[in-house]
């Protein structure tokens, strides 16, 4: 019976369209509500991709400024969060490019060790410091060992629960690449879990 599925997907697309209208008009009340609604998810995503809490805070603010400025580019055809994460991701990549112009390739080449640069693995990373309050030290250590480019797809798929098609929009890469990164990410996670905490 397609009833509930159809109902929820219509509801979601109606919501996305109303968000699109609001952000296009730069409705400040809507933006306030959106900031509150997506604050944890966006911040968590930024912590994972930057590996740095302070940096994540900066990017958090800058992402919402971009949402305000580029609101007219959101058409409401996809989930708002997918567009939001795409903006955040582009900001991080732009910053990394301006910081390290000689390593452009590392941003797009998944075979490079740290395409989205994180703190030195030998040091206790800021990500570790943030997450260390949690009980699952083993899982946490395993996640930290995964190259950022694979961790990012795992985060988007299994933490933010985005569909693979939505991830294509966020990451700006072909569907087949998203899938292969997911497979490699899961493989890396499995390998890290097998090896256990260092």
């Amino acid at each position: 019976m397609p009833g509930p599925t159809l109902f929820f997907s219509t509801l979601m697309s109606d919501e996305a369209r109303s968000i699109a209208r609001g952000v296009e008009k730069r409705d400040p009340d809507l933006l306030d509500r959106l900031i509150e609604r997506y604050q944890y998810r966006l911040f968590r995503y930024l912590v994972y991709v930057t590996g740095n809490k302070d940096r994540a805070e900066d990017f958090f603010q800058e992402t919402w400024i971009r949402v305000l400025e580029r609101g007219h580019q959101y058409d409401g055809k996809s989930k708002f969060e997918a567009w939001l994460f795409a903006i955040a991701r582009h900001l991080v990549i732009d910053w990394q490019r301006s910081k390290k112009p000689q390593s452009l390739d590392t941003l797009t080449d998944p075979h490079q060790e740290h395409p989205l640069q994180l703190a030195n693995e030998n040091d206790p990373s800021p990500l570790h410091q943030i997450l260390s309050q949690e009980q699952e030290e083993n899982v946490q250590a395993s996640l930290e060992k995964i190259p950022a480019i694979y961790r990012e797809v795992l985060v988007l798929r299994f933490q933010e629960e985005l569909q693979i098609e939505e991830m294509v929009g966020v990451l700006g890469i072909p569907l087949s690449t998203v899938k292969s990164r997911l497979y490699r990410g899961l493989e890396a996670l499995r390998g890290a879990l097998q090896r256990g905490p260092a």
Binding site: Q39, Y40, F43, I130, L131, Q140, L154, F158, L189
Partner: peptide
Amino acid sequence: QTDQALRWMRTTAIPFP
């Protein structure tokens, strides 16, 4: 273990500043 790790990712709370 993989299931646990993925579930943990979903449920983990990063303190929001």
